[in-house]
Amino acid sequence: MTATRPVDKFDRRRDELAESALLTLGEMGYARASLREIAGNSPFSHGVVHYYFQDKLELVIYSVRHYKARCVTRYDAVVRDSASAGALVEAFAAKLAQTIREEAPMHRLWYDLRTQSMFEEALRTAITEIDAALEAMIWRVIERYATLSGRPPAVTPAVAYGMLDGLFQQALLAYTAGGEPVLDGLTTQVRAVLPLLVAPAAAAPAPL
């Protein structure tokens, strides 16, 4: 049997702490959750948490990076498996709705931290890097949609991300207040917006 290296044990425990911290952060938000509060809602003592993380900021950054590392591949199966532009739109819209339904607290935390990063410089680098990875994730969807449509993208990656992220954030806010029924509206919006992100179809030549 191969012994686990000390660095592996250290990283594994940090991951466990991150998973636990995310539950509290997702419910309470960044400002309200202290390091002691996070420890109190986890199987780990405050001393253990403090041993692995210098302060709340380090724990929060590590936790969000840990979570978003999984998120940035969320739509890769949609890109891989969609055989037509229409199928991609439906699969992408369904996946957006699913992630709100299943992980709303984590998404609320993300938008909370992104707003906080405008005021707290220590958060800014990590949030900017994660945002860039999410933009690249969305752009893979748009490029595949463009290929399946036979039309090139009509916008930049930043514009595509801004438009779809805006729809997602609005749906998340509405879902928090109104629950499941609002997610049908997100699907309708995605169906309307994706065709706007690629070049218009060429007009048929006028009859002679």
Results as ranks from 00 to 15, higher is better:
24 T>P: 00
24 T>F: 00
24 T>L: 00
25 L>Q: 04
26 G>N: 02
26 G>C: 02
26 G>R: 00
26 G>L: 00
26 G>S: 02
27 E>G: 07
27 E>T: 08
28 M>E: 11
28 M>I: 03
28 M>F: 11
29 G>D: 05
29 G>P: 13
29 G>V: 08
29 G>T: 04
30 Y>C: 06
30 Y>P: 01
31 A>T: 11
32 R>C: 01
32 R>E: 14
33 A>Q: 03
33 A>W: 00
34 S>N: 03
34 S>W: 01
35 L>D: 06
36 R>M: 00
36 R>S: 02
37 E>T: 12
37 E>N: 10
38 I>K: 06
38 I>F: 06
38 I>G: 04
39 A>I: 07
40 G>T: 05
41 N>I: 00
41 N>P: 03
41 N>F: 01
41 N>C: 06
41 N>Q: 10
43 P>F: 10
44 F>R: 13
45 S>P: 00
45 S>M: 04
45 S>N: 05
47 G>Q: 15
47 G>M: 14
48 V>W: 04
48 V>E: 15
48 V>Y: 07
49 V>Q: 07
50 H>K: 14
52 Y>H: 15
52 Y>G: 13
52 Y>E: 13
53 F>Y: 08
53 F>T: 03
53 F>H: 10
54 Q>A: 14
54 Q>I: 00
55 D>G: 12
55 D>F: 02
55 D>P: 14
56 K>E: 04
56 K>V: 05
56 K>P: 15
56 K>L: 03
57 L>M: 12
57 L>W: 01
58 E>A: 15
59 L>E: 13
59 L>V: 07
60 V>I: 14
60 V>K: 10
61 I>D: 03
61 I>A: 05
61 I>T: 06
61 I>Q: 14
62 Y>S: 13
62 Y>D: 11
62 Y>V: 10
63 S>M: 05
